[in-house]
Simulated assay, not measured.
Amino acid sequence: MTPARLPRWILVLAAVGGLFVVLPLVAMALRVDWVHFVPLVTSESARAALLLSLRTSISATMLCVVFGVPMALVLARTSFRGQRILRSLVLLPLVLPPVVGGIALLYTFGRRGLLGGTLEALGVDIAFSTTAVVLSQAFVALPFLVLSLEGALRTVGTRYEAVGATLGATRWTVLRRITLPLVLPALISGAVLSFARALGEFGATLTFAGSLQGTTRTLPLEIYLQRETDPDAAVALSLILVVVAIAVVGAAHRVRPLGSLAPARPVAPALRRAVDTH
């Protein structure tokens, strides 16, 4: 493919923007104490924080998929009064400072929160627990999946679903055999990006879950604390987080380039299976 001809000033600005992103990462890598790198990133507190971050981020991503897929379907496939307001509220965590989200969660699920008293009466204490970490991460990561999947659903349209329904397939069969396979790349990419966002969550987690080693102290919180006492450890752990994030985002792009909405499998066989199943 012949590269597009662009004005030189576009290329210059693109190069400056790339340097703006890459240079800080290079500077951080140059600051790492490579002689003591392994002991710094394998200390007990570092390992506990990393394992907790991975475990809670996976749980938060599962929550995003369970609730985000239906939300995206409702926003993309239905029309009702107040839909724009609902979409704005769903995407609000994208623009809110994470600490504000943490405060909102605290006054919802905390002991003196909207639901906290009822939950406490049932013997459920969420605030400042590992569950609070998962909820904080899911709160800030959910819009990434909803936004990605809703855009994909609107792009592919409803023509294949209409054909399936015309051929006699039920709504559930159309959803399972046609709709979801069509947007599977966007769903996977959205889930991976939600995982990456959950992995890097800091403000909401600190506000709602606190910083208890082994319970709520995720890797970003560990980096923040180490920055005050051991800058070398903070830089080393930051590099680990950057590497993990790059690997996750790279995996999202390898599934299929973000924005590519070609069907994950041929549509005609999916329609035939939908009718046969029905």
Score class of each variant (00 low, 15 high):
P7A: 13
L11V: 14
L11Y: 13
V12I: 15
G17F: 15
G17M: 14
G18Y: 12
G18T: 09
L19Y: 12
L19M: 14
F20S: 13
F20T: 14
F20I: 05
V21W: 09
V26I: 15
M28S: 14
R31E: 12
V32S: 05
V35R: 15
V38K: 08
P39W: 11
L40I: 01
L40R: 11
T42D: 02
E44R: 10
E44D: 11
S45A: 10
S57R: 01
T61W: 01
P70K: 02
M71T: 15
L73Y: 11
L73R: 06
L75T: 03
A76E: 01
R77T: 10
T78S: 14
S88C: 08
V90P: 10
L94W: 09
L94C: 05
L96A: 14
V99Y: 07
G101A: 12
I103R: 08
L106V: 00
T108Y: 06
G113C: 06
G117I: 00
T118V: 12
A121I: 05
G123A: 07
S129C: 12
T131Q: 13
T131R: 12
A132R: 13
V133G: 07
V134N: 06
V134H: 09
V134Y: 14
V134G: 08
S136Y: 13
A138N: 14
A138W: 15
P143H: 15
R154Q: 07
G157F: 00
E161H: 01
E161I: 02
E161W: 01
G168A: 05
A169D: 03
A169H: 07
W172N: 04
W172T: 11
I178F: 03
L180V: 00
L187G: 11
G190L: 08
A191T: 04
L193G: 11
S194Y: 07
F195V: 09
A198K: 06
A198S: 11
A209H: 07
A209R: 04
S211A: 15
Q213P: 13
Q213M: 13
T216N: 06
T216S: 02
R217L: 10
L225V: 15
R227D: 06
D230G: 03
D232E: 14
A234E: 00
L237C: 02
L237A: 02
I240R: 02
I240W: 08
I240V: 15
L241V: 00
L241S: 07
V248D: 02
V248C: 14
V248L: 15
S260W: 04
P263Q: 02
R265C: 04
R265S: 07
R265D: 01
V267W: 01
A268K: 04
L271N: 06
R273Q: 12
A274Q: 01
V275C: 05
D276H: 10
